Amino acid sequence: MSEQRRSTNARAYRMGKRAEDVAETRRRIVEAAVRLHGTVGPAATTIAGIADAAGVTRLTVYRHFPDDEVLFDACSAHWLGAQRLPDVERWRAEADPAERLRVGLADLYRFYRDGVTMLRRVHRDRAELPATHQQRLDDTDARNRDALLEVFGTIDQRRAALIGHAVSFWTWHSLCVDNGLPQDAAVEAMTALVMG
């Protein structure tokens, strides 16, 4: 093998190794941030804390994530990628309004139950989140509400308000966590309230 080819191969190896190291560092930072968001919450998570948990310097965190929004985007994508998300299209397959409510709320409440540790802290610290993420939470609630509401045809303010209340994380938390209602009973209670 010629000296030039050996040099080219060595350079390519170093570049590949550097890219792997950069990706590994980024992954460690994101995982550290997700852990902190899930334990102390986004409001109490600091760059210094993330750097310490990831085993890097604060400058390294800033090099990978120049602002809170970019970091929060990466954390959200990482955490959501590990969850079984609610399947709104499956809800829409239900033509009967009461059944759609049951299917949709059961799916949504299962997601809340499975992610309660993170979701409780994110919703608690909502005011401290980047504005785009606050809007994303609102948009998700609106999308869920609308998917359950659209089957009714004529939409009245009372029904829209009750379904909006039913899809709220805090409604589920109050019923199932704070007051110990079994999840299926919470689904039935909210369905009865909306249909009544």
Rank of each mutant, 00 (worst) to 15 (best):
1 M>R: 01
189 A>H: 08
187 V>P: 04
157 Q>H: 14
181 L>S: 04
92 R>L: 08
62 Y>W: 14
138 D>Q: 10
82 A>G: 15
146 D>T: 06
90 R>M: 11
181 L>Y: 04
156 D>N: 14
192 A>I: 00
162 L>Q: 07
45 T>A: 05
140 T>N: 06
95 A>T: 09
152 F>L: 14
126 R>T: 11
13 Y>R: 09
5 R>K: 09
171 T>I: 10
33 A>G: 15
121 R>L: 11
104 G>T: 03
72 F>R: 12
124 R>M: 06
176 C>M: 01
117 T>G: 07
123 H>Q: 03
111 F>W: 13
97 P>R: 02
97 P>T: 03
73 D>Y: 10
7 S>V: 05
11 R>H: 13
54 A>I: 03
36 L>A: 07
85 L>H: 11
109 Y>V: 00
180 G>S: 05
145 R>V: 08
7 S>A: 13
180 G>Y: 10
106 A>E: 04
23 A>T: 05
32 A>R: 08
49 G>N: 07
89 E>N: 00
194 V>H: 04
17 K>E: 15
32 A>T: 05
52 D>M: 11
192 A>W: 01
133 H>V: 02
71 L>M: 12
152 F>R: 13
84 R>I: 08
84 R>A: 09
56 V>G: 01
45 T>P: 05
127 A>E: 13
185 A>C: 08
128 E>K: 13
138 D>C: 05
149 L>E: 06
171 T>C: 14
70 V>T: 15
27 R>V: 04
70 V>S: 11
33 A>R: 14
33 A>M: 11
85 L>T: 10
15 M>E: 13
60 T>W: 00
192 A>C: 00
196 G>V: 03
56 V>Q: 02
62 Y>V: 12
160 A>W: 08
164 G>H: 13
79 W>N: 14
112 Y>N: 02
145 R>L: 11
73 D>I: 09
54 A>L: 07
135 Q>H: 12
12 A>I: 12
143 R>M: 15
97 P>D: 02
40 V>K: 07
156 D>Y: 07
138 D>I: 11
176 C>F: 05
177 V>E: 14
87 D>N: 14
184 D>S: 14
111 F>E: 02
4 Q>P: 01
183 Q>N: 09
69 E>W: 00
138 D>H: 06
89 E>D: 03
175 L>I: 05
25 T>G: 00
4 Q>V: 13
195 M>K: 04
51 A>K: 03
4 Q>G: 08
38 G>N: 09
31 E>T: 12
16 G>A: 14
137 L>Q: 10
19 A>S: 12
34 V>C: 14
172 W>L: 06
25 T>K: 00
13 Y>D: 05
54 A>K: 08
40 V>N: 00
135 Q>S: 12
147 A>M: 08
144 N>C: 12
60 T>C: 09
95 A>F: 01
148 L>G: 09
196 G>L: 03
164 G>S: 13
130 P>H: 03
11 R>E: 15
23 A>I: 01
